[in-house]
């Protein structure tokens, strides 16, 4: 009975977090883009436009969920749910605060990199089942993109795993109690961090790597034919995905909920501990999300061959050499 109750509470929390994150992130994106584009952004619905996404959701709910003729009905309608379930599964091993973690599995990092590759299945399904040439092109692009960028994302995660010696997320965070890896690990960790940010931007199909939905080329790419709530599910899944990859980045390189500690400065560390751990976690995550949004509203889009060149000619060799360097650092104990 207690187990059942636990399930219900966890499920409700997950769905609630989903909804709130979706609303907050969409609003944040619109505000960030507006300020960078010397605009005001949404400012009519609610105080300073805070309820704009709620109004958008209502609009999307009231729209017709169209299934185009000639589409594979079952797969077409399945795809948004696959996208949603894939991202929901990723929430399980993420610690939102000290001791606030749904599932402290000992292979947490491996689990995340395995499940996050489910996203490509939903995109391929959506693209193929839509019976639309734009969607198909978008899906194929996305397939090539996500499969290749997972390599360097995985390698930069391995860099931290090598330093920590554990795949468990709570162990990784605990290992940063005397300083975050980004400060302890010298240049190789910085390289790993930059590679990670680039790779996850590509993995989540964000500009400048948004070739799957490149609006000036493929109108909307894989979700061209989706409307109403089915489109909203894709949209939401994209934002939750961004949140999750940024949370992983924060955990690996910035110590997750771990406050800012310096070696053995006891007094300083104690002051830092007064700030709640959830604030640390969300602060770091939202900072990384902001950086990814910053990319989107500054850079032009890459072409598909340049995208693959970047991965196979630059990111992958660099991160391979980098893993070697980090192993050396870890073995010789050169990190702080």
């Amino acid at each position: 009975m207690a187990l059942f109750l636990e399930f219900v509470i966890a499920g409700l929390l997950c769905i609630g977090l989903f909804a709130i994150l979706g609303l907050v992130l969409v609003l944040m994106e619109r505000k960030v883009s507006a300020y960078m584009q010397i605009r005001l952004g949404p400012n009519r619905v609610g105080p300073k436009g805070a309820l704009q996404t709620l109004a958008d959701t209502l609009k999307l709910l009231s729209k017709e969920g169209l299934t185009p003729r000639g589409a594979d009905r079952f797969l077409f309608n399945l795809a948004p749910f696959v996208a949603m379930i894939g991202t929901m599964l990723l929430l399980a091993p993420i610690p939102f605060a000290k001791g606030f973690q749904l599932w402290d599995i000992n292979i947490g990092v491996l689990y995340i990199s395995a499940v996050s590759s489910l996203a490509v299945i939903s995109i391929l399904l959506a693209g193929w089942a839509s019976n639309n040439k734009y969607s198909l092109l978008g899906a194929m692009r996305s397939g090539a993109q996500i499969v290749s960028y997972e390599l360097s994302a995985g390698l930069s995660i391995i860099a931290i795993v090598v330093l920590t010696g554990s795949l468990s997320i709570s162990d990784i965070i605990a290992s940063q109690a005397d300083g975050w890896w980004i400060f302890k690990g010298h240049l190789p960790v910085w390289i790993a961090f930059v590679t990670f940010i680039i790779a996850v931007t590509a993995e989540t199909n964000r500009a400048p790597f948004d070739l799957a939905e490149a609006e000036s080329e493929l109108t909307a790419g894989f979700h061209t034919e989706y409307s109403g709530m089915k489109f909203a599910l894709f949209f939401l899944a994209e934002y939750i995905n961004i949140f999750i990859v940024c949370a992983i980045g924060a955990i690996l390189f910035f110590g997750g909920w771990m406050p800012f500690h310096i070696g053995n400065w006891e007094g300083f560390n104690r002051i830092m501990d007064y700030i709640p751990s959830s604030v640390w976690f969300f602060g770091k995550t939202f900072f990384l999300i902001f950086v990814i949004m910053w990319f989107r509203w500054t850079f032009p889009r890459l072409r598909i061959d340049q995208l693959l060149n970047l991965e196979w000619k630059y990111l992958l060799p660099i991160s391979m050499v980098n893993v070697l360097l980090i192993t050396l650092v870890a073995i010789l104990g050169w990190h702080f």
Binding site: I38, W294, T298
Partner: peptide, 16 residues
């Protein structure tokens, strides 16, 4: 990014 970051932090540049 420095350019867009400048406009992000300088709200008086908004022309809307």
């Amino acid at each position: 990014m420095r350019r867009t970051g400048y406009y992000f932090t300088h709200h008086k540049e908004i022309i809307t």
